[in-house]
Write a protein that binds this DNA or RNA. Structure first.
Lengths: 162, 162
DNA sequence: GGCACACTTGACGTTAACGTAAGGGGCATC
DNA sequence: GATGCCCCTTACGTTAACGTCAAGTGTGCC
């Protein structure tokens, strides 16, 4: 109901971001320690702007795809420092391409793993269809899972509204 | 020129597998410690059979897609223990499906990251085309990278043939 | 002014996944 | 029979990414 999250001049407290992205203050301070974030200060308190928030999003996604904080920092630095001349930028470009290749390989791995698990599922389903069809989870149950997940997200959003 | 790797009765020393999969003996012993592998013994020495080798492959792929050893172990156990009755199998089936959902989400993350990096690449390429077209890596260079990778693989394959 | 509450900075603790060093056995080979 | 090589176990060390206190500061409120 409140003001626009996207308004570029808006700032965030550490808690704002923690709640929004489900991380702890400790983590944010840690990222700062490691040079991945450098929010402004208001007295002692940290003040995050939209740029900081965007960086945090990138950090978290980087983590989810398996990058180390050091690797993420490197990428962020490359994004930033590309006023350091064309040579610098050419170097960044190479690194970016390497990362892309690595990520593509990783995605193929994941597809392989999914396939493997699906194979396992299929076998188990066939077995169960023979042995105990009553134990077979139905499509309805599957939807239950999805709904539960959505509820979970909603719950999290409420959790700190109290 | 040598005997068939796929011959089911063939066994492997710890070093065989280490060389083949580019891991250290320490790692294999560690996996055993954690209950992910349990090779036979010949005296003190470990003797791996095809089943062990297949498990190792699964372990390493699991690692590449970001699973912890504990999670991998759980999955392997589920694969094994499904003589424990139909109820057990139904439980495994649920867990497998959860894993699949998680992996699919992770793959989407990776796709997003790739897209992001591609965007960065595009911008840099445009900049460089303006500023210093000479620094632009050409398609030829790109192929160089790929060839270098293949060479690397080939080297590894030769490494233990000597 | 006292209390709650959110923020801060250390600094030590923890977990995962190994690395590494120390010490020892078994077998071929020079 | 000493050397070298591969294997073993035990055990302490290491790195990443935080968690978890402890102790202090600032701000609003009754």
């Amino acid at each position: 109901m409140t003001s626009d999250l996207r308004r570029p001049e808006r700032t965030f407290t550490i808690r704002n971001l923690c709640v929004e992205f489900r991380v702890t203050p400790r983590a944010l301070r840690f990222y700062e320690d490691k040079g991945l974030l450098y929010p402004a200060r208001e007295g002692l308190n940290r003040v995050y702007n939209h740029r900081d928030r965007a960086r945090l999003q990138l950090i978290l996604r980087g983590k989810r795809v398996g990058l180390s904080l050091a690797e993420i920092r490197e990428i962020l630095d490359l994004y930033d420092e590309n006023d350091g001349g064309a040579a610098q930028m050419a170097k960044s470009l190479r690194k970016f391409r390497e990362r892309i290749l690595a990520l593509e390989a990783q995605r193929d791995d994941i597809d392989g793993a999914i396939e493997q698990l699906r194979g396992g599922c299929d076998r188990m389903e066939r077995q169960l269809t023979q042995l105990r069809p009553d134990l077979l989870p139905r499509a309805a149950d599957y939807n239950q899972v999805l709904l539960a997940r959505l509820d979970g997200v909603a719950d999290n959003a409420h959790a700190h509204a109290e």
